[in-house]
Simulated assay, not measured.
Amino acid sequence: MTDFRAGFVNIIGFPNVGKSTLLNKLVGENLAITSPKVQTTRQRILGIITTKHYQLIISDTPGILNPTYELQKVMQEEIAEAFEDADIFIYMVEAGDKPPKHLEWIGKIKNAGVPYFLVINKIDLTDEVTLKQKMKEWAEVTGEENILPLSALYINDMSAFVDKLAEKLPVHEAYFPEEYISDKTERFIAAEKIREQAFYIYKQEIPYSIEVEIRSFKEEDNIIRISAEIYVSRESQKHIVIGKNGQALKELGTAARLQMEEFFKKKVFLEIHVKVLEDWQHKRNILRKLGYK
């Protein structure tokens, strides 16, 4: 299979431009969690597409930001790692964005010396005239041939874009077995499903103060039994996560369980406990224990 192609397609962009949604649509699985809030993605996650002719390894990354504490520093290190192994870049912007904000990062991508695409996302939020003008502005930066306008949330058929990406891959043997759809474990995905629902159920700083660890994951013939711990930074946050008479935690558990059942295609029994791990986001040694690099 000397003409087999394989490589890493790394998605880069500022928070909440739709990187995780694009990954999910390209792979055809809800691997990366999404929410309307910024900084939902904390760790790099790989989605894998394997055919007889190629293997695309598509990498979702945290959003670009200026870090102010240890967790955010770790998140930015994930982006730096994506620059080390990229065979193709996808740089994502929103339809309303202006080029000057992005010139530094587009310059870094150009200097990497690999093929890249500029994806203009959320075109459903603009009109045709405005979009054409924006594409002209971006074409002066990247060249028209590198631009792809789309709405990742609503597009269902990504096959044409997948084919474009595959054409740009280097000749290389597969990096992962053909049955793999991600580099992440089932435990990681289960934890992320819980964290995802926290962004929808809780307000203000609470979702950003939550970390989830799967303590037990036991798969039986007809059911998966999962025990999870939610860590928060302060005692006051623990009370909010649990809620009056445990109602908030019950709502979270139900929503997360349904998402897990849809993903794993099997019944799930989920129990969740809440503990305080004081200021965990600010301590590098604790972050390592929680699975961050």
Rank of each mutant, 00 (worst) to 15 (best):
T142L: 12
P115K: 15
L56F: 06
V162W: 05
I12R: 05
L46G: 01
D124V: 09
I230K: 04
N222Y: 12
F217E: 05
L125Q: 09
L23G: 08
K110G: 15
F269R: 15
M1V: 08
I224K: 07
F8H: 04
D157F: 09
P207V: 00
K283T: 02
I272D: 10
S35A: 15
V114L: 10
G47S: 06
S151N: 06
G243C: 01
Y208R: 00
T130V: 12
S20V: 07
I49Q: 06
A174S: 06
H102C: 09
L118G: 07
P207C: 03
E81L: 12
F176H: 04
K266V: 14
P15L: 09
I286K: 00
R5S: 07
I201Q: 02
E251Y: 04
F199H: 03
E78F: 01
K164S: 13
P67I: 01
L23T: 10
F89C: 14
L153A: 04
P207E: 02
I120Y: 08
K110Y: 14
G291I: 00
K266T: 14
V27Y: 08
E78P: 04
A112N: 08
L118I: 14
E81K: 13
V129C: 07
M135I: 15
P170K: 08
V241Q: 02
K193C: 03
E81T: 13
D127W: 10
K134S: 13
V114F: 09
E167F: 10
A191K: 01
V212W: 00
L23V: 15
P149I: 07
T50R: 03
I240P: 02
T40H: 03
V114A: 11
N111M: 13
V93L: 14
A86W: 07
E271A: 13
I286A: 01
S151H: 04
A190S: 04
F14D: 06
R42G: 02
E128C: 07
Q237G: 00
K193P: 02
V232W: 09
P207M: 02
E205N: 01
I90H: 14
Y202W: 05
T2H: 13
G47K: 01
V38H: 15
G113N: 14
P149R: 10
K98Q: 15
A152D: 04
K110R: 15
A95C: 14
A95K: 09
D60W: 00
V171H: 09
K73Q: 08
L287Q: 01
T50S: 06
V141I: 15
D127Y: 11
H53M: 06
L22S: 09
Q39D: 11
D3I: 10
T21A: 12
P99E: 13
S35E: 14
P177S: 04
E94P: 08
I181L: 03
A80F: 08
V17W: 11
R42V: 02
T61C: 00
G246R: 01
E140Q: 13
E128M: 09
L169P: 04
I48M: 05
T126W: 11
K132F: 13
G291H: 01
N156T: 05
I48N: 02
W138H: 10
K98E: 14
E140N: 13
Q76I: 05
L26A: 10
A82M: 11
N121H: 07
D127H: 11
